[in-house]
Design a protein around this nucleic acid. Sequence first.
DNA 1: AGCACGCCGACT
DNA 2: GTCGGCGTGCTC
Length: 735
Amino acid sequence: MPTIFRIAVPVPLPRLFDYTPPRGGDDAPILPGSRVLVPFGRRQLVGCVVSSSPVSDVPAERLRPISRVLDSRPLLDGGDLRLLRWAAEYYHYPLGEVLAAAFPVLLRRARSAEEAVRRYGLTDAGRAQVPDELKRAPRQRQLLAWLQAQAGDVEEELLDSLEWDWRQVLRILCDKGWVAVRDCPLEQPAVVPGVSLHKPGPALNPEQDAAVAAVAAALGGFKAFLLEGVTGSGKTEVYLRLIQQALEQGRQVLALLPEIALTPQLEARFRERFAVPVGLFHSGLTETERLRVWLAAQRGALPILLGTRSAVFTPMPALGLILVDEEHDASFKAQDGFRLHARDVAVMRARLGGVPIVLGSATPSLETVHNARRGRYQRLQLSKRAGEALPPRVRLVDLRNQRLEAGLSPALRGAVAETLAQGEQALLFLNRRGYAPVLICHGCGWVARCRRCDANDVVHAKQQRLRCHHCGADQALPSVCPDCGSDDLRPLGQGTERVEQVLRSFYPGVGLARVDRDSIRHKGELERILDDVHNGKAQLLLGTQMLAKGHHFPNVTLVGVLDVDGGLFSVDFRAGERLAQLIVQVAGRAGRGDKPGTVLLQTHHPEHPLLHSLLREGYAGFARDALAERQAAGLPPFSHQALLRGEATERSAPQVFLQELAEWVRRETPEVFALGPAPAPRERLAGRYRWQLLLQSGNRAALHRLLEKLLRHAETLPAAAKLRWSVDVDPADLY
DNA sequence: AGCACGCCGACT
DNA sequence: GTCGGCGTGCTC
């Protein structure tokens, strides 16, 4: 009786495929979690064994044998597979693709883990060979000369920098005996028992002490915590103490951060405290580095893994604790393909793995606040700022009837001047890059719009370009109106580039640094600018959201937010939450050390209730009122959502398809509301038409049952073939 | 997603 | 007479 293996294959099909054992195979068992090479149609694909069974629903004559077993022992254990299966089910995404996403790219190839990184080196004969003797083989000559110029063995990744197909040529050099393959077994880091401290931490305040004690008591079982602490309240020290305890029990720790940019700071804190290896895992690494870290974690040989969203599935057999820092950050939610939310997956990982998880933030998401209130998460509060720093004063600046200069009110201009006069630094936020968001013709009213998107082009004055910030389309700035020929083209509104220009004329001789995606092109530039701020060369700092995260400016005593209103009156119900988080975050940038800070918020709506609760009672008061509004409106977290998106080059296809689905949903169940379909906020993007259908329900199980059924139903609709469509469970923004 | 097969327009 | 457009169907 042959065994049947159920295998997840990286194709967008929501099912597993059955295979028979490899032909002429030895008797070594093939266990779930092992990668295998399988024939799939005409191709050979790397799949992953999920389970085995004595029988198959597929007729025996259609079953094909596994071509090759790639892993003699599984790379994923039962717990890993359980989490991945849960994620595939919850996000309604094909298990094969979920599994593929859990492996680093180098393990999605048909090689064993030991061979995944292959090195090549010259033999003695190869070193002795004179390349120029290869007169009739220019490619061989070139490759040999290149190899001789390298210091030692080279990895495939380095050969790829040649940008031509070196594989064939290299094979010839190998056949001639000039080059040898050196599979380098990945170094196996020694398992570090326990923990050795480089240095002990500072004494804890009573709140930190209580937080550490609460989580430490939960080590060894599942429990979720919300660690709520303002900037500078010592969250990191709590993390360090908890890591220490987990390490002392011989367990591994997974710490997730929203962005690559934040990893070095935390990494440095970890390394100065613990004398154990700390692995980094994020998209900024090379594939070889990612593979090494992944395998070390998978072998239990990496005590601490610090990573971004993509690290959440990394196997860690001795996992004892999960930390999610800045848990409210939108970067944890993937915005394309497999749209997972790494924070939510991490909570499930902790639950399945029986370990505690700590979600840290000064401004927790309303979902998390809600969970804490319901008692699902235990709330731990850190309210004291370290070093006796005074909290900043936050004031509203009423913009109504004010004379604005480049979007700056007289009150803000005065405050900046005063701050500079006292030799202190000021920080201004404007969430719009470029010179001006609109170019309009004063002669006929023509407005520069993107040809492929429903969006205005943005003026970039310095480079004399018009750019679409949605699709990246880029063209020369016209000198006359393309419609009427008038030469009176006027930029409307403010971007950071224009505000920078105006600030330079207001404050001549003052060091000004602008930080946005246009001014920070290369890595290292941000660090240089931040250095200028720290050493005082830059007194005035202007930037987009890039500036809000993770940087400390001790001498900044004034923060101005130029335009707060966008967050108050958005179609997106989460805009207010994001605005409140931004305000609290930037307020945390001001007035550290001995100088109290001031935060000025420019608004046309100084009476807005959410601004008031935020100013009077802080983020907690805001969260209470915002949650009350969400509850009254039946919005998340008081209901659950899934968004169906459709896009096609043909205009009506997405609407027709989603309309059909909406009607089907309404017939199917009264428990799920279908809102729409409606055109996406930007219906046309990069030449494609986009519509969406929002599904909402007070009952999560009912929503998921319906989605399951909907996916099977949609497969049968002819209209489905005319567009690309996808499901987004728990959509973060409705775009 | 790939990758085939299949059935109708502009070229050697 | 062929090359090639992308519709539709399938992958254990």
